[in-house]
Design a protein around this nucleic acid. Structure first.
Lengths: 341, 341
DNA sequence: CTGTTAGCGCTTTCAT
DNA sequence: ATGAAAGCGCTAACAG
């Protein structure tokens, strides 16, 4: 690994000049700069990160913290797509994106503190925000730039990007009402992820506004897994006044709900209308095809990259980055049928 | 962010002593060490990574390079599980694991070179090795410790861990032969990932050893996606002397093969036996249930963590880490049926 | 335009 | 057992 010193010696100039040439600083003879760049390329020189970080006090690295493990609500390629897009955006500005996996069995606060203090990151993105999220409370006490994927009720004026679950639930309930449904249930992951409470709140508000019942017996919370979904279905079909439709607010639960309904001899769609969450590979194999929401995960990644960049390194446009909602659009498929009674 | 200086000042001792106390170096008064540790904890002090890295020439960080993007062969939670386990093992030794996503549209060599030269990693793990992998050729020219998840034909005596695809294909073919099948096809991703050629080679060797035909018209290579699988099925059913069984050597292709067979009016199992790859969430919803291989992804993660640790920081046991194969066990389900003609 | 030098935070060697 | 100081590779301020 050649250092800047080796480069300078080889060219018989000072390391200062080399550094200036490499960093596009003013006040370097054009020819000299050319020679430096050529030599650097030839030797495969890249500035050592430790030296540069120490001196500049920044690392040009953004960390994306992703919860993993069996309890994590990520049974699909959602993060893969987000990360993809973020990385390609950030790399254009010379910023590295690293993913920091944190296992559900670990203490997220301890992990975060350690990550913060080590100082290897310029900015941090938290994902899968909780309704009451101690990580946010902790970040608010630091000066580290950070944003979240997902809102939270934890106080603070942090930057967030989220999907418009509120609008999604509104569209879904409204459509089911149009089709004659009155008893519309909602299936939630019991983990206190914030999007679930947003979704539930919007369900309740819309139901109430339409004069439909929004009672607690229509809210089913179970573990946000396929098994949890199956349990919801089992509970649902056992109800005296069985709901005729259900909104499923967690991807992994969806196939469990389908399976549970079928196990009870009910047909999704014909007997109980089902609306899922995001269009995802896991949804493709359900029969009948399931109604769900479409959103641009790519756009989400792009927005997140732009936002964290502006927050951390300063906005290119001069305007501060804004928290924003990504649209969700309801797509109807045969899992939703009109109620004719 | 308090530094070591602040800590030292507060305790009225020199930074040298503080450093020694924090790093468990000999020659520190027990009481002094105690005081230092307490103060550090109280102030939330963690050594700044840049300073430490610069001085020690190491970062205590291992990077796992994962290809992402639509072309990537990772439509599931495989890496999530591996990463999970690796991280919890490495963290016990104070080593951070970071995931470096590299989009399929990027030049993997350029990315790797940049990553290497920045010097933020002590060790690197490459995944999804190709039969002829330029990344390995490049790493062989450096002194950076690295290992691969997957073998390759690229020369070099690098450390690898892989699954025993050879044994898997052998078991599958042998079993199908027992059940009376003679025309056994193999469905491969056309991307030149190395495991596919290992699988194919073993299929061919086993077929030949059993006196079965192993001709090229039984090898179907398409894009390693669901659509690719569907195309394979379409080509397969159109064959004059239709194969009675097919081994599918890429997870995402599997549901495509099922769909393609069904679209042609054939029942997986009853009409064409199908053996998939890994047991994964994507497989759970196929009907009839699909035969596939079971393996301990957790064990894989553990093995990888141990191996890269030993390679990078020296073995704890004194023995150098060995390349190794993770067993695959064939599990039969109704997608495989005896051939009765 | 270029050379010299201080110093980022830390570990480690050398004195004491 | 502790303090003082050098130096890891780099950038930026200053001098020439």
């Amino acid at each position: 690994m050649p250092g800047i010193k080796a480069l300078a010696e080889r060219l018989n100039i000072s390391i200062g000049t080399v550094s200036r040439a490499l960093n596009d600083m003013p006040g370097v003879n054009a020819e000299t700069r050319q020679r430096v760049l050529e030599a650097a390329h030839e030797m495969g020189y890249v500035a050592n990160a430790a030296g540069r970080n120490l001196r500049k006090g920044r690392t040009n690295t953004i960390g994306l913290i992703i919860g993993t493990g069996p309890t994590a609500l990520a049974g699909d390629n959602f993060y893969s797509e987000v990360v993809d897009e973020m990385q390609s955006v950030l790399l254009d500005d010379g910023i590295d994106l690293v993913v920091l996996p944190v296992h559900s069995a670990m203490d997220p606060i301890a992990f975060l503190r350690r990550t913060l203090m080590r100082g290897t990151l310029d900015g941090i993105i938290l994902t899968a925000t909780l309704t009451d999220d101690p990580r946010i409370a902790m970040m608010e006490d630091t000066s580290m730039p950070y944003m979240t994927l997902g809102r939270s009720r934890t106080p603070g004026d942090y930057l967030w990007i989220d999907m418009d679950f509120e609008e999604g639930a509104r569209q879904a309930v409204t459509r089911l009402h149009e089709l004659g449904h009155r008893r519309i249930a909602v299936c939630l992951p019991q983990e206190n992820v914030n999007f679930a409470s947003i979704y539930q709140d919007s369900w309740r508000a819309t139901m109430t506004a339409l004069g439909l019942p929004a009672t607690d017996d229509l809210c089913f919370a179970e573990e946000g897994s396929e098994d949890g979904g199956a349990r919801v279905a089992a509970r649902l079909v056992a109800l005296d006044d069985r709901p005729t439709a259900v909104l499923v607010c967690a991807e992994p639960m969806t196939s469990g709900v389908y399976g549970g309904l079928q196990a009870a001899g009910l047909r999704p769609g014909a007997d109980v209308s089902v609306i899922a969450f995001r269009q995802s590979p896991l949804m493709r194999h359900l029969s009948p095809p399931i109604s769900c929401f479409e959103m641009s995960v790519k756009q989400l990644g792009r927005d997140m990259a732009d936002a964290i960049f502006a927050l951390t390194y300063g906005s290119k446009t001069g305007t501060a980055p804004q928290s924003s909602l990504l649209p969700m659009t309801y797509i109807e498929r045969p899992s939703v049928q009109p109620l004719d009674r």
